[in-house]
Design a protein around this nucleic acid. Structure first.
Length: 798
DNA sequence: AGTCAGTCTCCTTCA
DNA sequence: GAGACTGACT
């Protein structure tokens, strides 16, 4: 009796303390023990749940679900609890402190995210919620956490504590030398392709031997060999690439009992965010760490899994509850971000995917403006339409420029938008593009620092040995490289003794000079602070002088970038206990960009849909929703790829809070080719009743209409058809054929056609050539042919 | 060693 | 169509 009353009152009071959350969110917060999968739809308050859950664990342990009644509890206490419902929240919270159970120690929590940005956001929100104790939580990215573990135990799997991390650029250089040294043609095997192959293998924890034994053909055999040699060189240089950071940590935890037990004992509670983005290696990693205590919580949204191309395995989230026994699954489907009109459109799109858990977002808000669809003639018209619309909404709805975002599938689509914005003088920012640490000058200076830190780093040495020019040409570098390989020494040590090698005699002095420069800087590094060191590097290597000598604009901004590194160093010294050179280099290797996206800056923001994931904007424009662009042409004939594109479309639509504008164009210049694309199938998946098709907008080829014999533009008033259709319509505008200068039926990418000789095929390209169209047609039996529309005897196949 | 013209490629991205 | 890259030339 008393027990029931107590438990009841306690739980009621908890529900009051967390009454800013909905039922599902609260259920997630209270579920502390055991495996937990939270399927969090877009805008469903995922981060709030994560933060509140950790706060709850630390403050109350498992109090809500506990069935225990503490022995001290009297009827008085129960009455106090029952009456506490009217208390202010802070007092109710304090009262519940008395009934906390198995409180979780902050240091036993491991919280993993994908990006530094997310990790930092998590840290600062935890600090607000939990206070000082939050500092003890291990919150970081997969990579930063694994590096921490490897710095401690890496020697058990052959990595000295001072290991270096290779970025994509370093990897490319290393792989190129592997391919060349193994006598293969780098045109047949592009380093990028081989690296991608290696990266996918490492994502799945496959060693070179695993890959070798599974190789399907000669090509894969060969790439497995490159992988093997590439890996050998990484290890001998005490270096890891990004994928190694995860894979070698898994290997360490599998092979070394002490390291495994350390992690398993320490991290009693493991939380993983953005779980739909994890790859196999990351799945295994989190499984091992949480194996002992079984408290693994993962949060994600299978409908927002958009990183297949970089190894993310959607099966991790789809099968989590099947792979891990007794998993509790909680779906967060209430959306607090978008209007009903926008959510309905998003649901209409995503429900066409077969491979998903199945969620449907809802909101208790009613209405909202319908999603707008507009068709324009060219991409310049499209850009102008967007700019004009923004100015119009700014005027009529009093919106700020920071309310608007333009999200596109391809970076190259930003060009025409950018010129429209700058022509009209509307402030805008393009996100993405070249990152700070990707700039050549920044990489060069970092390469100097790496070499100072670790002189046996051949890849970095080759990067800067002749930068600025020291008259050490390729032939000399190659000679050093070969000697180093033969003598099994680093290039640096060969160069120090250059005079001993006859083949280097001519360059010996210059090589020696270079090593002395680096050794001198090493001495400076030992006594001076980081910022001073970088300044000296710029001076003593002649790098600063080189940039100053360059033509004004370019050199000046590049020098600014290089010097920005000094500010980074100062910042680093101020915020880190260990401000050694190696600690700084590690930070620079792991931290992508200083995140400078300021959501309040008074400017329209332009970015890819991928980079917009996790963000939200009051008004969103989605240009180029066309077949072949979005969905991209590479995905048109592959169901899994197409589902991925559909998820991307879902992400795009769910970024919008109030208004969504979709546009497409009659013709588009892409990769130097004019293409005529149909409206994206994703837009066709939205019921017409949900769309506000603006005057002049059309739905494109609708299979239903074609079947019943209506042209795609049959509803279009005749008067408006004039000019833009005197050319040709991408939609097979047979109804207007007589009006156009091209008397023949026209086709667009994706159409199936029949040729009297070659049989059936699919249009893969359509380029306007004077008054005619040059089609590229992939025939089923004879491969791809190019033919002119006016002369080719091709017919549409239904 | 540096310059220039011709060639090739081209999606999305984080650590 | 732009940018990266290559190879030949000075």
């Amino acid at each position: 009796m008393l027990k029931d009353r107590f438990l009841n009152a306690k739980r009621k009071l908890f529900d009051k303390v967390y009454d800013h959350l909905n039922d599902k969110q609260r259920e997630a917060v209270y579920t502390v023990n055991g495996p937990l999968l939270i399927l969090a739809g877009a805008g469903s308050g995922k981060t709030t749940v994560l933060v509140n859950r950790i706060g709850y664990m630390i403050r109350y342990g498992n109090a809500y679900n506990s069935e225990r009644v503490p022995s001290f509890v009297t009827e008085q206490d129960v009455i106090e609890l029952e009456n506490a419902l009217t208390l202010p929240k802070a007092e109710a919270e304090a009262l519940l402190d008395r009934y906390s159970e198995d409180r979780v120690k902050a240091w036993s929590i491991l919280s993993i995210t994908f990006t530094n940005k997310a990790a930092n956001e998590m840290k600062s929100r935890l600090e607000k919620k939990v206070g000082e104790e939050a500092g003890a939580i291990w919150a970081g990215t997969f990579h930063s956490i694994c590096v921490k573990i490897l710095r401690r135990y890496g020697d058990r799997v052959g990595y000295g504590a001072g290991f270096t991390i290779y970025d994509t650029d370093d990897q490319k250089k290393l792989m190129l030398s592997v391919i060349k040294d193994m006598g293969a043609d780098e045109k047949m095997f592009a380093p990028k392709t081989v690296l991608n192959f290696v990266s996918r293998a490492k994502d799945k924890l496959m060693t070179p031997d695993d890959v070798q034994s599974e190789a399907k053909d000669f090509r894969e055999q060969k790439m497995a060999q490159f992988y093997k040699e590439y890996q050998r060189r990484l290890v001998s240089g005490n270096a890891l690439d990004f994928d190694d950071i995860i894979m070698q940590t898994v290997r360490l935890l599998n092979e070394d009992a002490e390291a495994r037990e350390y992690c398993q004992n320490k991290f009693r509670y493991v939380c993983v965010d953005e779980y739909q983005d994890t790859n196999r290696a990351q799945f295994v990693l989190t499984s091992i760490i949480s194996e002992k205590h079984g408290n693994l919580m993962v949060v994600g949204d299978d409908d927002q899994s958009i990183y297949r191309f970089r190894g993310a395995d959607i099966d991790n989230i789809l099968n989590f509850d099947r792979e891990i026994a007794d998993t509790r699954v909680i779906k967060l489907e209430q959306n607090y971000r978008s209007t009903k009109a926008i959510l309905d459109a998003a649901n209409a799109i995503i429900k066409n995917n077969a491979n998903r858990h199945g969620k449907s977002l809802w909101t208790d808000k009613e209405g909202g403006s319908a999603v707008s669809l507009r068709r324009l003639d060219t991409q310049n018209d499209e850009s102008k339409y967007i700019v004009d619309k923004i100015l119009e909404l700014k005027r009529t709805e009093g919106r700020s420029l920071s309310d608007f975002a333009v999200l596109y599938r391809l970076n190259s689509l930003s060009n025409s938008l950018e010129s429209a914005f700058s022509r009209s003088g509307v402030p805008y920012r393009v996100l993405g593009g070249l990152r700070f640490t990707d700039r050549k000058e920044v990489k060069d200076v970092l390469a100097y620092l790496c070499l100072i830190n670790n002189p046996s780093d051949n890849v970095r040495l080759m990067r800067i040995i002749n930068e600025p020019k020291r008259k050490i040409g390729d032939s000399t570098v190659n000679a050093v490289y070969e000697l180093a390989g033969r003598e099994n020494e680093s290039m640096f040590s060969i160069m120090r003794n250059a005079h001993l090698y006859p083949s280097l005699s001519k360059a010996a002095n210059k090589l020696k000079e270079f090593t002395e420069l680096i050794l001198g800087l090493r001495e400076i590094a030992a006594v001076e602070a980081l910022d001073v060191l970088i300044d000296k590097v710029l001076d003593l290597t002649g790098y600063r002088a080189m940039l100053k000598a360059q033509d004004e604009q370019e050199g000046k901004s590049r020098l600014e970038n290089a010097e920005e590194l000094i500010s980074n160093a100062v910042e680093f010294i101020n915020t880190h206990e260990d401000s050694s050179l190696s600690a700084f280099l590690e930070e620079m290797a792991l931290v992508a960009d200083i995140d400078n996206y300021d959501p309040d800056a008074e400017a329209v923001v332009l970015m890819t849909v991928h980079s917009a994931k996790g963000l939200e904007f009051p008004v969103v424009f989605l240009p180029a929703l066309e077949e072949g662009v979005f969905p991209s042409s590479q995905s048109l004939y592959d169901e899994a790829e197409l589902e991925e594109e559909r998820r991307l479309a879902y992400v795009a639509v769910t970024r919008a809070k109030d208004r969504l504008f979709i546009t497409h164009t009659r013709e588009r210049l892409l990769y130097g080719k004019t293409s005529y694309n149909k409206l994206s199938k994703f837009v066709s998946e939205i019921p017409e009743s949900m769309l506000d098709i603006e005057k002049g907008a059309e739905r494109g080829a609708n299979p239903m209409r074609e079947r019943i014999g209506l042209g795609a533009f049959s509803q279009r008033p005749q008067a408006q058809i004039s000019s833009e259709f005197t050319k040709r319509s991408p939609f097979g505008a047979s109804a207007y054929a007589a009006k156009t200068s091209v008397p023949k039926e026209t086709f667009s990418v994706g159409d199936t056609v029949k040729h009297p000789v070659f049989g059936t095929g699919v249009i893969t390209g359509a380029t306007s050539v004077g008054p005619d169209v040059l089609y590229e047609i992939a025939f089923d039996s004879v491969g791809t042919k190019k033919m002119m529309g006016n002369y080719a005897k091709i017919k549409r196949v239904q």
